[in-house]
Design a protein around this nucleic acid. Structure first.
Length: 118
DNA sequence: TGGTTGACGACAT
DNA sequence: CATGTCGCCAACC
């Protein structure tokens, strides 16, 4: 089940790391369901929902409450750094969730050997 | 069964 | 870089 898969995956996001809606969608095998992931997060309970942000590293607006603040606070308390209102994805994006054959999230970790080009 | 609704995302302006 | 459009898709009605 989609919802269950999403919740199970989000539950695995380590403290101090974040994932994007699109990333979660890909990891559960539904690459085009990023939006639906948000729907699941809306009522998510008992999972680190605050570790899921949009593709820009920003905190997406919720329908009712203004939990944007709460989410950011929580992330910062875990050590996640923000830059101009956005999570510094290159450094805090979670890479995991299964087979690392996942292209696209490969080389954005500065501390690795990715800094050869520039 | 069929139409509407978004915690999204890639692109075009 | 900041909006606006359009495509997507699971959940809801």
């Amino acid at each position: 089940m989609f919802k269950t898969s999403v919740l199970r995956l989000v539950a695995r996001i380590p403290r101090g790391r974040v994932a994007t809606y699109g990333q979660v969608a890909v990891l559960v095998g539904r690459p085009r369901s990023a939006r639906a992931v948000g729907q699941v997060m809306r009522d998510a309970d008992g999972v680190p929902w605050h570790r899921v942000v949009n593709s820009l590293g920003g905190i997406s607006r919720r329908p009712r409450v203004s939990g944007m603040v709460t989410q950011r606070i929580r992330l910062e308390q875990e050590g996640v750094q923000f830059r101009r209102g956005r999570v510094v994805l290159p450094r805090f994006r979670w890479r995991g969730g299964g087979p690392r054959r996942l292209v696209g999230f490969a080389c954005d970790e500065p501390s690795l050997s990715c800094r050869n080009s520039t």
